[in-house]
Simulated scan of single mutants.
Amino acid sequence: MLNNTENNLPTWIFFSNVDATLVNESARQLLVWSGESFGRLLRSTENILNALMSNDHRLTRESVVELVALLGSCVGSNPYPPPDTRSLFTDCIMVLSRYLAQLPKDEI
């Protein structure tokens, strides 16, 4: 993780290849499952996932927080999610939360 708050530059979170792949694959399965009910938020989520899978598997802290919110909205877009959807969501959130938890308290 790289912190440049003094210069108002973003705080970058670097993901391992394994974690980036897990988040990407699980999140994309969630997007397929949610389909049309997810609506206009689909493109924003895909953009963040594309960024995660390119350029050293890194995202800004703000993008990680946004991805958590978008995935929550994705799952919440259907009131009756199947059990495997909860597992996919949990996989994503566990990885993203672990990286956020590694930031110093004043960076969160």
Rank of each mutant, 00 (worst) to 15 (best):
L67K: 09
T85D: 00
S54E: 15
L59W: 03
E62K: 14
L52N: 05
L67Q: 12
L59D: 02
G76P: 03
S77W: 08
S63D: 15
P81K: 07
L49G: 07
P79I: 12
L70G: 03
P79W: 03
T45F: 11
D84T: 08
G76S: 11
A51N: 13
N50Y: 04
L70S: 06
T45L: 06
N50M: 05
C74W: 10
M53E: 09
S63V: 04
P83C: 03
L52R: 11
R43S: 10
V65W: 01
S77F: 08
A69M: 06
S44A: 13
N47A: 14
R86Q: 00
T60G: 14
H57Q: 08
L71V: 03
L67W: 11
R58V: 04
G72R: 12
P79G: 08
R43C: 00
S54I: 09
T85F: 01
M53P: 02
S54F: 12
A51V: 14
S77H: 09
S77K: 02
S44L: 11
A51H: 09
S54Q: 15
S54W: 01
L71N: 09
R86C: 07
P81D: 02
M53D: 11
T85G: 01
M53L: 13
E46S: 01
L59Y: 02
R43N: 07
C74D: 14
V68F: 06
N55F: 11
A69H: 04
D56A: 09
P79C: 00
G76W: 01
S54H: 13
S73I: 00
E62D: 15
S54A: 14
S54R: 12
I48K: 10
N55Y: 05
H57E: 01
V65H: 02
Y80M: 12
V75A: 07
R61Y: 07
E46K: 15
N78Y: 08
V65G: 07
P83M: 01
R61I: 00
E62Q: 15
S63H: 13
L59A: 08
S77M: 10
N55R: 10
S63T: 10
T85W: 00
E66L: 14
V68R: 10
E66K: 15
L70H: 11
T45Q: 08
G76M: 00
P79F: 05
A51S: 13
L67M: 14
V68E: 13
N50Q: 14
